[in-house]
Design a protein around this nucleic acid. Sequence first.
RNA 1: GGCCCUAUCGUCUAGCCUGGUCUAGGACACCUCCCUUUCACGGAGGUAACAGGGGUUCGAAUCCCCUUAGGGUCACCA
Length: 552
Amino acid sequence: MTRFAPSPSGHLHVGVARTALFCWAYAHGRGGSFLLRIEDTDQKRSSDSASLGFLKDLEWLGILWNEGPTYTRADGSVVGGGRNGSYFQSERLEIYNREISRLVAAGHAYYAFDTAEELDAKRKASLAAKIPYRYDRTALGLSKAEIDANLAAGKPAVVRCKVPAGAIVIKDEILGEATIPAGEVDDFVIRKADGFPTYHFAVVVDDELMGVTHVLRAQEHFTNTAKHMVLQDALGFRRPTYGHLPIISNPDGSKMSKRDKDKTLRAAVVQKGLTGPPAEFLDETRWKAWLADKNTQLDITDAMRLAAILDVVLPEINVDDFRRSGYLPQVLCNFLALNGWSPGENIEKFDLEFIKQRFDLSRVVKTPAKFDRVKLLSFNCDAITGMPREQFAAQCRLHGERYHPEFLAKLTPEQFTLLADASHERSKTLEDLYRVNRWVVVSDDALTWEQSKNVSKTMLDGTPRGLDRLRELKPLFDGLADWNVATIEATVKGYADTHCEGQLGKAAQPLRVAVTGGTVSPPIFDTMAILGKASSLRRIERCLQRFEQPGA
RNA sequence: GGCCCUAUCGUCUAGCCUGGUCUAGGACACCUCCCUUUCACGGAGGUAACAGGGGUUCGAAUCCCCUUAGGGUCACCA
């Protein structure tokens, strides 16, 4: 039994997703069970019970749990449940209290009444004196009567674990053995003043009661393991096998944080010299507050709008960000698995089934990994290129229905299929089609031409100019009865053969600029076929007018 | 700062445990060329690493020590 035990959240961080993936793979790879438990013992952070949005991220990735919160999938099937519930720690307070009473009675834990201010002062004093802070056990000196009096008086009380003297040896399947010297672990709190257990306590109790035998978690928990071992000994619990996974960070070594998105935006605001909020964006006060406080975050819709205005790309942090950017779930899993683990034999591309069968703690690396989005993109590109045509079109449509309904609404099914087929081999993500083909959804009379060097070069440079060729091409299309890729191709190629010494680009580029407003699009025959005859001709006509003006 | 962990191309990594087959392999990125109607894709080449210093050994990327560097952690967060 392996478990994945996140704190509740609306979104799944990719690093956390990798932990889930490895836990899932480890359990299923050796006939075990995969348990999901919600660690919601922080009332401040977990008060929002609707913050289980990350479950849909797990579903999307294909990581489903045998035991845990009940969850209804998109297809109506239900996962989760189990005999060891509740799988929400906030609903297990009685169990924790029972175990804490046991510890107190046995002398392994004790009440403490120090105030936050007192502890803070001591901590600061230690810092000033350059000695490491440890809880000084003042509360341990309290008599039974004093404790009872404080309790009766309703004084805020925590329970601390009485950590026995002596070094603690952590055994880890990935990192090997580490010895934490005696005195390093102080008497940590196991029950907070609000009556909730701390993470350390709840984890130990639940892992035992739920039958967890293997704990895979991020390396940031490594030194916590000592505390958990102390607790296991005091409670008489079994010791699970531990494996601490290397941390995944940004390419620059910084922690991958949801705040990176706002950080990127703030940097762009400064770089572009924006003084006030862009028109129709946030109001002045909200804007200023957001700019001033590095800890405030825009919601995803606002962040994306601002990113579009500033023309910056937001870094993907959560699984859902990658989904929105058009990555395939199996590719994300594949790539995530490669951060911290490898199957060897120069194998790099694989699916969930492969990970399940091959994942093994002995091949997990000990060093932190920097998350390389460029390589992920390359993997995604390969996966998309390798898809059958119909599958790409279908997946792309699904992606559009979720993220670009207004785009889809402007296309007929036939147009969409043509566009998807034409975009397939040049797409690296499911998002690309929607990102680079704005020309499809712009109305003929609203199309504008890019003010770029490439566009003006295409239209106005050389002899004859692109503009002149366009004028010659237009009547050829006027007379075209059948409008499809083949007839358009024959027309353009015929023209290029006779007028451009066979150089197709001489004819294709002016046409491309005319009908799309820019120099980038799918092959020109497809592009014009998708637009249809009327649109194509109307755009060519407008383009001629636009560039024939002197000084254009 | 204390404690713990780690150290192979720019990045993710193989190799390390069981020293020789490693003039260190793969992938992404980068560079060159080819293909080409734009953008991509694709094809063929190429540059590029054992952190430094001591040992052990006939022999070290592989074992040991030191230095340096990086990461993690020191909460009534998880």
